[in-house]
Amino acid sequence: MKLNGICLSLLVVIIWGVNFSIIKIGLEELPPLLFSALRFTVVAIPAVFFIPFPKTSIWNVLGVGLFLGVLKFGFLFFAMKSDASAGLSSLILQAQVFFTIGLSIFIFKEKINQGQIIGIVLSSLGFSLFFIEAGTNITMLGLVLILMAAFFWAISNVIMKKTKDINLLNFMVWVCLIPPLPLLVLSYYTETSTPIELVLSASAKAWSALIYVSYASTLVAFAIWGWLLRNYTAVSVTPFALLIPVVGIITSSFVLQERLTNMELIGTLLIMSGLVICVLYNKIFNWIKRK
Rank of each mutant, 00 (worst) to 15 (best):
L181Y: 10
L181G: 03
L181R: 03
P182H: 03
P182D: 06
P182T: 02
L184N: 01
V185A: 13
V185Y: 09
V185Q: 09
L186C: 12
L186D: 00
L186S: 11
S187Y: 00
S187K: 03
S187L: 02
S187Q: 02
S187N: 04
Y189L: 10
T190I: 11
T190Y: 05
T190Q: 07
E191S: 04
E191P: 00
E191Y: 02
E191M: 06
E191L: 10
T192E: 03
T192K: 02
S193N: 15
S193P: 13
T194D: 14
P195S: 05
P195Q: 06
I196L: 14
I196D: 08
I196G: 06
I196Y: 11
E197K: 14
L198S: 04
L198V: 08
L198P: 00
L198Y: 06
L198I: 10
V199H: 02
V199I: 15
V199R: 09
V199C: 13
V199S: 09
L200I: 14
L200Q: 13
L200F: 15
A202E: 08
A202K: 05
A202F: 09
S203L: 09
A204L: 15
A204G: 14
A204R: 14
K205R: 14
K205C: 12
K205I: 15
K205H: 12
A206I: 05
A206T: 10
A206F: 04
W207M: 05
A209N: 06
A209E: 01
L210P: 01
L210S: 01
I211G: 03
I211A: 12
I211K: 06
